[in-house]
Each structure stands twice: as structure tokens, then as C-alpha cells.
Design a protein around this nucleic acid. Structure first.
Length: 885
RNA sequence: GCCUGGGUGGUGAAAUGGUAUACACAGCGGACUUAAACUCCGCCGCCGCUAAAACGGCAUACGGGUUCGAGUCCCGUCCCAGGCACCA
């Protein structure tokens, strides 16, 4: 064993041994428990960033821990290789996206290997390769024939200068990112996955996902957004509209229909179009509604504007005429493209009504009633105006709402009003109860080059014809450099000119590609049989490994990716490819990696961002940060706060520099120790130094222990008190680290336990053979507990400690409960909840004995003097609280 | 705007409703060293009292509430972050 800790040599040796022995290549082993540990695969953007390192370290720790539990562990890796950044890089550097992507993959793969991840590289999957996407195209054609995929118009951001469709990200303050032109909304035909047909199941089966964070399930539930309401039909007022007809709206609040004072329609709605025909003002407003991006955040934060059409519709219950407005916040393509407005009970409608002087008619009032089942009015009910202070004391009185100003529907609670009004609408054929979802069908057409071609041929005679299986894949040419104006494929006759698979006549191939979320929706299943050529997945292999036991990835994927993957799994299930209902049994969502930002304001109002590595932080005597200056010129810079590491803020720290300087183990240890996985992690150079220091301490202790020769076996029956304390520390660490790693994935506290154990072991005597045998047990424990986190150093320690076999094949240590037993316990004593002293009691002491000892405590007597003791609360093993006044 | 989280020392953080600040980092003091690095030892929330301690008071974003006891549960407010369907 070398005297100094030399991470470079140790890590290279361990990694080449694992490589040579194919230690992490797995195959199906019937009868052995499987554990499929999956981290979200990276987009090959160039080099690894800190988020990747964190994500894959967490996954690797879990995978290695499960292996030590005796499981057959599958941990694969691949590349989410299609996407926009490759096209942007291509335009900037005049390189084809394919070349750029493959070079990035090669470099990032070498980086991942240097981290020492226990990955089965024989299963590597790359989504931009035809042997992967051909199966995506195959499934597409099956689903198209089944009607799960269909074509309709959708709204996109249109850059009128570049003549191209823009992603939401490419629209900055309503303008195209390259041209600077004002963006418009435009309708184009697109293909859609009918995800809404699975809305109910996607909602219901969230309940089965007991291994998912509640937070993520709540977000998905709200996203799917099941609501109970009614369609409500308003007849056109023929005099003002000029023709007969009906306007349909959906509302979750038909109970407030009596308070509706106007209706609002989208700019594209037929009523709006008709009214605009000879109304230039309305035409201008409709044009204005088309400006801006399609992003919902933009729509929701923009100023709510509207314009009266001069048209009216008839209230289905009262016969009153309600004015029809065109409003920019009503979206065509969401529901009916029209809403009824109840200003008294909806904040947005209230604001709008005030702005345009529309009537506001309340149909509910507050009452306070004695708490009892809803629907039963109590003769003692209080009408409004109960003093809130008084009300809080009368806890039995609860606030409820009952209808007013609603004619025959007066004096009802929500349910009663809802039912009565919907019943009348149904009877009058002007509405119907309806359950609706907020979830919309998934539009997957992209007018881009670097994506999976949509396998459809457009034939003048036969319509949209899916490409037959024997003509798949539709291969994407890999030597194209896009120019940012429209889709390159649409300008390549050699790509789109073809003949109809049905009738053989000349036809045109679809030139749109698929949303890259499609590839990432099923890669986890392909890993089970990555080279299978007879189908999308080998059902036998897929069912052996799936569902994924542990999925790990960023919280930013809580909705879209995770919902699409769940949807795809159900599609594959319904194709007979997999037998499970859900793809991911347990989910761990990691927080972001953030770092401080530094900048200097520029004359043009912008900011010049400096990398933390180039900045020197100034502190006061108490080490509080008081300023920062640039290392190169020594002049001050502004501190911009901690943010997600990004190119735009120039606060990224390259993980490679850390790996090169300290080694993979230090890097992994720091990442796991700095914060629990779910929290965001702040970058700290000093923290890395600390992690490195700890590993050197472990190495030094092991080295001095081993250099004196390995001791004989430990005799646990003849330990002195000091040795018992040390052995207790060893097994306490095992117990707590096992819980932290195995159950809660709190690697930071598990590491803290091992650090505490190291503090004990370093102070332990190493004189007698028994001392040294105990130290041997302690060091073996440290190596085993750290093995998943810092696998290289532990690999070397295991060998140095004279153990047979590799530590990757060793079992996770077991707790010896007898080592944890204590004779006396320390309890704290409180008086009225305030800490007043400590007492020592025998572990077996009765409640009475504990109470008596507590009451006899000097400080307790001081604080209870002159007071009557009302109550004594004894929490076994913890504390005594004496209540006195 | 809507949905979901978060806010604890100088910093990262810890705490099944039961001793708030474990474990680290930074800082300060000391030992070792020709010197430095490494390493080791000690101190380290704020305030009061004190020669020093003992001791006491106050602190978990802010304001209320429930409880013998609240960082943790409930109500309200503020701030920060993630997502919002074409970034991945």
C-alpha cells in the first residue's frame, strides 16, 4: 500500500480492471432479483456539466448499493441525440449536426468513463441512429392506422422575416431571436398523439406509483386537470348576429350561470370573423391578437384586452341578451374557443368587466352556519356580518356560500345550484354535464431537420399513407447543414420525392420530423434489448427488466418527459410489447447545480458576465462576503446571486477540471455530501478541498494500520468499555448509513455518519491485538459504506485490508444490534418546554424512577420553586417535561 | 398569471411534533516546521452578566394559531426557484 493517497493511479487501475472483467455487463439471470437503475440520458451538448455529474453519481451510488444487496443490477447509458442545439451549432460552425453530435458523444463518453460509473456500455443507445429511430417510425405507422395519431391544424410561432417556425425558447420579448422580427401566431397542419384518450388512465395510475415523490404526482394531476362542469349553449341573437346559430362554452362553474354578464370568444372564432367582416377596428384588433408567442406564460401575463363585436347571444335560462366580446386571452383550439364570463366570481372576468364597464352581478353570499353536513340549512344560521374575531372563537361556526340573485335557484349551496341549473339546461337542450381534461393532445410535428422523419407519404389519390414496414426506416440524410430559414428537408427533392406505397403514383414524403420527446419516451425499454432487430423491443427481455426500479433525473422533467414516457409505455403495452402499466417504479428528482454569478453593467444596459473561476471574493473579519473583484484587473464586479449554471450567465464550472485535479472519488464525494439529492447544490471550491482532505485521512489511517501487519480475528466477547464504545460507533454508523442510503437516498447524512466514525477511529488506541482487530473492523466498515460513493479508493482499501475478492462483489455490512446496547441513557429535562437540565438514568429505569430523578435535579428545583407541578411528560429515551405554574 | 417546491449560523447543511445548528467548509488562536504547505489541538449563532465560567434571554423569512412542547402541523403575508405543452 502506497504511503500517499494517489487517486490517479488508483482510479486508472480500478477502472481498467472493471473494463477487462466486464464487471458491469449484465444478462438476464432467471431466479436472481433484478434491479434496473436508470438515470435520464444526456443530450450530447459538447461536454458534461455539473448537473450530469450529479445525476450520474446519484444513479451510480444507488446501482452499486443494490449490487451489494445481491441484486442483478442493470445500469445502462445512451444519448438523446436529436435536437435543436445541433442545428444551431451547425449554422454557427458550418458543420453537419450529425458530425457535431457524434464528436460530442465520443468526448462525453470518455468523460463519463473517467467518473468510474458502473455502466453496461454494451447496451449504449443513440437516438439519432436509424437502428433506433426505425422502431419509432414503425410504432408511428401502427398508431396512425389505429387512429391514435391523427392530423389537424396547430398554432406555432412564425418568424415572418426568416420564414420559419420558432420554438418558444427562440422567441425573446415577442421577437425572433435571429431576425428580431415581431413573431406571429400561424396555423399549420401537424400530427398529434391522442394522449387525451389516455388522460383518465394517466391520472388513475398515479395512485399506483407509491415510489414517486408526492410533489411530482401532484404536478401531473394538476397538469392533466380533470374537471367536472357543463357545456352551455347560447343561441345567437339573430338581430345582432345576422343569422341563426349557437355558441357553445364549457364551464366548471355552471352554478354561476345566473351571474354571467357577457361572453368572450377567441379572435379566430366564427362570430368574431363574421363581426369583423365590415368592421375595420375589429379587424385590427383580431390582427393584434395574432401577434406574440404561443407560450402560455406569455399569454397569461399579457394585458387582458377585448373589443365588443356588437353581437349578442341569448342567456339559456333567463333569455337576457349578453354582449359578445373578442378577447385576447381566449384561445382558439382550447376547448370551444369561447367562454362565459361571471365577473362577480372570477378574478380575471372581474378585471375585464371593470376595464370595459360591464355589469357585475354577484350570485353568492357568505353565511356562517353551525358546522353540520352540507345541504341542511339550520334555523340558527347567521346572515353575514359575523365579527371575525368572535367567529374564530366560535369554532363551530363555518363559512359557507349560498346563492342569491338567481331566481328559482336562490338559497342553494354549490352542489344544489350546479345540479339544478345543469338539469334545466339539459331539459331545455341547451347544455349537458361534462367531465373535461386540461391535458391537450400532443403535437409532435417539427419543421426541423435534425429529428426523426415522420414516416408518412402524401398522395393526391390516397391521402396520408404510412410508410410500409418493409420500407422503413425513412433515413435522415446526415450530411446536411441547415441555414435557419425553413426546414432543409422541404428543400431536398431527393428526400421528399417518392412514389405512393399504395397506388405507386408520384407522391411527396412528409418533411417534418418528430418532437425529440418521442425518442426519450421509450429509450428505457430499448436498453433491455438494444440490438434486437425483429422489433422495437424483445418482449421477453423487456419484461425481464421492466419496470425501471429506480429512475433518476432533474425535477425540471416532472411533467412533460415523465408524462410522455408514461403515455408511451401504455401505448407499447397496448401493442403487446410490454406487460407492465407503468415504466418507472421509483423516481428520484434531483435539484439543480447552482453557482454564484458576477457581472459588470454595460453601457447598452446589458451585462458582462464573469466566470466564478476568474473572480476573487472579498470578505470581512467574520468571513461575510462584502464584495468581489476580477482577478485579471483587480477592479470590482457586481454579485448577481446564485443561479442555475448556464452559458448565458457564464457561471458554469467545468467538472473536468475538478476530476483532473482531485480525481473522480473526490468529485463524487463532494457532490454527494454537499446536499441531499432533491435540493439544489451550490458549487464550492472549498468544499471539494474538504472532500479530498477526508479521503486522504481515510487513506492515512488505513495505511498506518496495514503497515503494522494485519491483526487476527476480533473477540467481541472480551471488549473493555472503551472498545465497546468504538464498536458501538461502528455499528451505529452502519445502522444509520444503511437507512440513509437504502431507504431515504440521503447520501449527505450517510457520509456524515462515516465521518463521525472516522473521528472515533482516528482517536482509538492501536496498542493491543484486540485494539487493532477492532480498527480492522472499523476500516472495513468505512470501505464498505463508502464503496458505492467512492468506489475506486474503496477498491484499493479492500485489497490492502487483505480481503478476498473485489469490493464491488462484497455484501453491504450488517448491523450487530448487540453492539448498540447502552447501560445508561442521558435524558434532558424541561420545565414548561424549556431546557433546564440533563439527567443520567439506567436504560432499564421505570417511568417513576425517571420522573423522580428529573424532579430532584438541582436546576429543575430552581425553576419550579414556588410553582405547583401540574403534569409530568416522560418521552422514553428522550426527555422529561415538567409542567408547572 | 397559473401549478409545484423552498426560505435554519459567515457558508453547504442536520433534526420520526421532543436537547435547534449534527457533519463539513470558511474564519480565528495555538502546536509542528529554518519557512511554507501538509498535519494535529482548541474556539466559533446573537445579546446580557462575568476576570473567566456557571447562568439567563433571544433566534429556524414575516405575522397569527394549535400543543405540555412547533424548524416540523394549521391560517395569512413576503421573497426565491422549477414547470407552463416547440430548450432538453
Amino acid at each position: 500500500m502506497h504511503e500517499q493517497y494517489q487517486p490517479r493511479e488508483i482510479e486508472a487501475a480500478a477502472q481498467s480492471l472493471w473494463d477487462a472483467q466486464k464487471s458491469f455487463e449484465v444478462r438476464e439471470q432467471p431466479g436472481k432479483d433484478t434491479f434496473y437503475c436508470l438515470s435520464m440520458f444526456p443530450y450530447p451538448s459538447g461536454k458534461l456539466h455539473m448537473g450530469h455529474v450529479r445525476n450520474y453519481t446519484i444513479g451510480d451510488v444507488i446501482a452499486r448499493y443494490q449490487r451489494m444487496q445481491g441484486k442483478n443490477v442493470l445500469q445502462p447509458m445512451g444519448w438523446d441525440a436529436f435536437g435543436m442545439p445541433a442545428e444551431n451549432a451547425a449554422m454557427k460552425n458550418q458543420v453537419a449536426p450529425a458530425k457535431w453530435t457524434y464528436e460530442n458523444i465520443a468526448y462525453m463518453k470518455s468523460q463519463l468513463k473517467s467518473l468510474g460509473l458502473g455502466i453496461d456500455w454494451s447496451r449504449e443507445v443513440t437516438t439519432c441512429k436509424p437502428d433506433y429511430y426505425r422502431w419509432e417510425q414503425w410504432l408511428f405507422t401502427r398508431l396512425f392506422e389505429k387512429g391514435v395519431i391523427y392530423r389537424k391544424n396547430g398554432t406555432v410561432n412564425w418568424d415572418p422575416v426568416d420564414q420559419t417556425v420558432l420554438a418558444n425558447e427562440q422567441v425573446i420579448d415577442g421577437r425572433g431571436w435571429r431576425s428580431g422580427a415581431l413573431v406571429e401566431k400561424r396555423e399549420i397542419p401537424m400530427y398529434y398523439f391522442r394522449i387525451t384518450a389516455y388522460a383518465e388512465e394517466l391520472l388513475q395510475s398515479l395512485d399506483e406509483l407509491t415510489g414517486w415523490p408526492e410533489q411530482v404526482k401532484t404536478m401531473q394531476r394538476n397538469w392533466i386537470g380533470k374537471s367536472f362542469g357543463a357545456d352551455i349553449v347560447f343561441d345567437y341573437d339573430e338581430a345582432s348576429v345576422g343569422e341563426a346559430g349557437q355558441l357553445k362554452v364549457y364551464s366548471t362553474r355552471p352554478d354561476t350561470l345566473m351571474g354571467a354578464t357577457y361572453v368572450a370568444v377567441a379572435a379566430e372564432h366564427p362570430l368574431a370573423q363574421r363581426a369583423a367582416a365590415n368592421n375595420p377596428e375589429l379587424q385590427a384588433f383580431i390582427a393584434e391578437c395574432k401577434a406574440g408567442s404561443v407560450a402560455e406564460a406569455d399569454m397569461a401575463t399579457m394585458e387582458k384586452k377585448g373589443l365588443a363585436t356588437g353581437q349578442f347571444v341569448v342567456h339559456p335560462l333567463t333569455g337576457a341578451l349578453l354582449p359578445v366580446f373578442v378577447a385576447n386571452y381566449v384561445l382558439w383550439g382550447y376547448g370551444e374557443g369561447a367562454v362565459m364570463a361571471v365577473p362577480a366570481h372570477d378574478e380575471r372576468d372581474f378585471e375585464f368587466a371593470n376595464k370595459y364597464g360591464l355589469p357585475i352581478k354577484p350570485v353568492y353570499k357568505k353565511i356562517f352556519i353551525k358546522d353540520q353536513p352540507r345541504g341542511e340549512r339550520n334555523p340558527e344560521d347567521q346572515e353575514e356580518h359575523v365579527d371575525p374575531a368572535q367567529w374564530q372563537e366560535w369554532y363551530a361556526w363555518k363559512e359557507h356560500l349560498v346563492t342569491i340573485n338567481s331566481g328559482k335557484y336562490n338559497d342553494l349551496y354549490f352542489d344544489g345550484a350546479f345540479d339544478a341549473i345543469v338539469a334545466d339546461l339539459e331539459a331545455g337542450d341547451h347544455g349537458a354535464r361534462k367531465t373535461q381534461f386540461r391535458l391537450r393532445d400532443w403535437g409532435i410535428s417539427r419543421q426541423r431537420y435534425w429529428g426523426c422523419p415522420i414516416p408518412i407519404v402524401h398522395c393526391d389519390s390516397c391521402g396520408d399513407v404510412p410508410v410500409p414496414e418493409d420500407q422503413l426506416p425513412v433515413t435522415l440524410p446526415e450530411d446536411v447543414v441547415p441555414d435557419g430559414a425553413g426546414s432543409p428537408l422541404a428543400k431536398m427533392p431527393e428526400f421528399y420525392e417518392c412514389s405512393c406505397p399504395k397506388c405507386g403514383k408520384p407522391a411527396k414524403r412528409e418533411t417534418d420530423t418528430m418532437d425529440t420527446f418521442v425518442e426519450s419516451s421509450w429509450y428505457y425499454a430499448r436498453y433491455a434489448s438494444p440490438t434486437y432487430e425483429q422489433g422495437m423491443v424483445d418482449p421477453q427481455a423487456a419484461n425481464h427488466w421492466l419496470p425501471v426500479d429506480q429512475y433518476i433525473g432533474g425535477i425540471e422533467h416532472a411533467i412533460l418527459h415523465l408524462l410522455y414516457a408514461r403515455f408511451f409505455h401504455k401505448l407499447m403495452r397496448d401493442e403487446g410489447l410490454v406487460s407492465s402499466n407503468e415504466p418507472f417504479k421509483n423516481l428520484l428528482t434531483q435539484g439543480m447545480v447552482v453557482a454564484e454569478t458576477y457581472y459588470r453593467p454595460l453601457a447598452n444596459g446589458g451585462k458582462d458576465w464573469f466566470n466564478p473561476a476568474d473572480v476573487e471574493v472579498e470578505r470581512d473579519a467574520k468571513a461575510k462576503v462584502i464584495g468581489a473583484k476580477l482577478k485579471s484587473d483587480g477592479l470590482p464586479v457586481e454579485i448577481g446571486g446564485t443561479e442555475k449554471m448556464s452559458k448565458s450567465k457564464n457561471n458554469g464550472v467545468d467538472p473536468q477540471a475538478m476530476i483532473d485535479a482531485y480525481g473522480a472519488d473526490t468529485c463524487r464525494l463532494f457532490m454527494m455530501f454537499a446536499a441531499p439529492p432533491e435540493l439544489s447544490l451550490e458549487w464550492s471550491d472549498a468544499g471539494v478541498e474538504g472532500a479530498s482532505r477526508f479521503l486522504r485521512r481515510v487513506w492515512r489511517l488505513a495505511q498506518s494500520h496495514v503497515s503494522a501487519g494485519l491483526p487476527g480475528a476480533l473477540d467481541t466477547g472480551s471488549l473493555n468499555d472503551a472498545q465497546k464504545e468504538i464498536r458501538r460507533a461502528i455499528h451505529l454508523a452502519i445502522k444509520q448509513a444503511s437507512q440513509d442510503v437504502g431507504q431515504h437516498h440521503k447520501f449527505n447524512t450517510a457520509i456524515a455518519q462515516v465521518m463521525t466514525l472516522m473521528n472515533v477511529l482516528e482517536k482509538a488506541k492501536a496498542e493491543s491485538e484486540q485494539d487493532r482487530a477492532l480498527l480492522q473492523e472499523g476500516l472495513e466498515t468505512v470501505a464498505l459504506l463508502l464503496a458505492p460513493i467512492t468506489p475506486h479508493i474503496c477498491h484499493a482499501l479492500w485489497e490492502a485490508l487483505g480481503k478476498d475478492g473485489l469490493i464491488i462483489d462484497a455484501a453491504w455490512p450488517a448491523v450487530d444490534e448487540s453492539a448498540l446496547v447502552q447501560d445508561t441513557l442521558t435524558l434532558v429535562v424541561q420545565v414548561n418546554g424549556k431546557l433546564r437540565g440533563e439527567i443520567q438514568v439506567p436504560a432499564a429505569a421505570s417511568r417513576e424512577e425517571v420522573e423522580a430523578t428529573a424532579r430532584a435535579n438541582e436546576n429543575v428545583l430552581r425553576f419550579t420553586e414556588g410553582l405547583a407541578i401540574r403534569k409530568v411528560i416522560v418521552v422514553p429515551g428522550k426527555l422529561v417535561n415538567i409542567v408547572a405554574n
